[in-house]
Nucleic acid binder design. Sequence first.
DNA 1: CAGCTTATGTCAGTCTTGTTGACATTCCAA
DNA 2: TTGGAATGTCAACAAGACTGACATAAGCTG
Lengths: 170, 170
Amino acid sequence: MSDARPAQSFGGESLLFLTDEQLRQGIEAMFFAYRGFTADPDRILAEMAYGRAHHRAIHFINRAPGTTVNNLLAILGVTKQSLNRVLRTLIADGLVESRVGTQDKRERHLFLTPEGAALESKLSDAQRIRMRSAYKEAGPDAVAGFRQVLEAMMDREMRRTYANLRDSAT
Amino acid sequence: MSDARPAQSFGGESLLFLTDEQLRQGIEAMFFAYRGFTADPDRILAEMAYGRAHHRAIHFINRAPGTTVNNLLAILGVTKQSLNRVLRTLIADGLVESRVGTQDKRERHLFLTPEGAALESKLSDAQRIRMRSAYKEAGPDAVAGFRQVLEAMMDREMRRTYANLRDSAT
DNA sequence: CAGCTTATGTCAGTCTTGTTGACATTCCAA
DNA sequence: TTGGAATGTCAACAAGACTGACATAAGCTG
């Protein structure tokens, strides 16, 4: 990493000579921001016997109702055993319903129960409030840039998954 | 969350009527991007007996050489027991040096050894390569927005910590 | 100096969440 | 029809977070 050069600015628009220092500030920003990003739902979850993994499962089941375990696995990027433990407790607690597939009986289709949907709303609301506030503070142009950089930072496969979810929005 | 209104655009500049759908896309972008953000160092760390916790400690010790345990605790936001387990292994493995404070002998000042600095470089390089590539792809304006939104998303205290680290850059 | 506070380290125990290994069920194709 | 592939479940284990209790050393204050 010896190609660091000072950033140059012309009329507010910097050329892309990125110093290690600038990049490291971005790295630290991601670290601290992610903490804030998860803080509010974490607080809610801590009151119950749940963790971040439960939140993620609930989020994406709500996002794609009827999704299979395998599909959820690909989105979350964990092992099926790890996901299964989380799903088991959510099903036992009546937040998620698992229906055997009609065509392929090996598959389980996942749905939120009304109770599950209620928790999803509570968690999402908390997270959206912070996101909305950050968006408002930074402004519309910043938000567009934010989304662009995040997307460019994803692995190829995650980028595809992300785009699929985004474009499947009703 | 019943105040959702369709986003309106005028000449590429949207007003800030943020729909839940737009916010949720931001939430998912953060989730997928953070995975990419940590993926490269995680791969390197997995080959050794280390994890993400070791990376974080090494990163901030490199960032602020001579920092005390207490200071590191505040930055990382974990318990001293948790940090201590990590530091103990790093010191035992000769990656970190702990020096008793000269003025206040209760304090331990932390430094990377040459071996520790080498690992830090290796990890940072991997992470910076991805960050640099994302920055290049998104462009300079996007980068500025990215940083603004991230900063607005942090907790107040983390924001202060982040700014202190940023401004202490040589 | 005595006693309180601060900084650090350690031990023990628990929880969440990731892992691998083994296994059951179901589907499909040779 | 039978063997392999896909899907999901159970069990055991490891990393890394947490709390609580306690020890030690050093600074500070009356």
